[in-house]
Amino acid sequence: MLKARVIPCLDVKDGRVVKGVNFVDLVDAGDPVEAAKAYDAAGADELCFLDITASHEGRDTIYDVVSRTAEACFMPVTVGGGVRAVEDIRKLLIAGADKVSINTAAVKNPDFIREAAEKFGSQCIVVSIDAKQVNAPGDPDKFEIFTHGGRTPTGIDAVEFAKKAVALGAGELLVTSMDRDGTKSGYNIALTRAIADAVPVPVIASGGVGNLTHMVEGIRDGHATAVLAASIFHFGEYTIHEAKAHMQDAGIAMRMDDTI
């Protein structure tokens, strides 16, 4: 039976982790590879690096991070942030990424999704959708795509864009509710479900996790097949194992293998 996935996400800037990773036994908590190894050993089902490096010169650092991670971790790795061209994807895949997530570039130019999927296969193209709920309370749900870290509205309907992204070749969607991100009040379940029910491909729920029940809700009520979280793991509030055990207790089939 296919299991739901728990995916820790590390923000990386100039080759260093920016939001603290608070584990014992980490020699260098700022090294994304050390953090990746810890998550690998802890039973994470996948790993996500979000490269938030602003400078052009700093961008090459992510290739080194991915390459060193692939030497040590034998699980799937997705890399996102600043992916704008086919050449960016090629370099990340060669470095050892399994999947690449495209965000702003896909919104600006949806044909980039098609180009990427045709070149590298849908299985490695994740389209990342950052959306906010924009309807007035009591009105029918309406979700709009925002870019640039949630600052720039686009006027694009998130569910319609999700369908289009899949039609163009996206193999998976990472759906982040920008109005929940950082609030710890839980995923926006209405958003997650609206998109998950509208597309045939897997959806990863993201943005707003504050406790383990939120992860259960993402799968059970949001119809996601994977849940992504950052701070609750990085700051040691919960371990990966605790998250998976909690989800399993709630009736969700989880992979509980001992790791290497």
Binding site: M1, K3, R5, D45, P200, V201
Partner: peptide, 28 residues
């Protein structure tokens, strides 16, 4: 059910087994 089939799944091995699966727990 979503396509692609993406993620972690268990495998069921036929009774005769195989040398490449030696020592590895399979099944549900």
């Amino acid at each position: 059910l979503k396509i692609p089939h993406m993620g972690w799944n268990t495998i069921q091995v036929r009774d005769s087994g195989h040398a490449v699966l030696k020592g590895l727990a399979t099944g549900d």
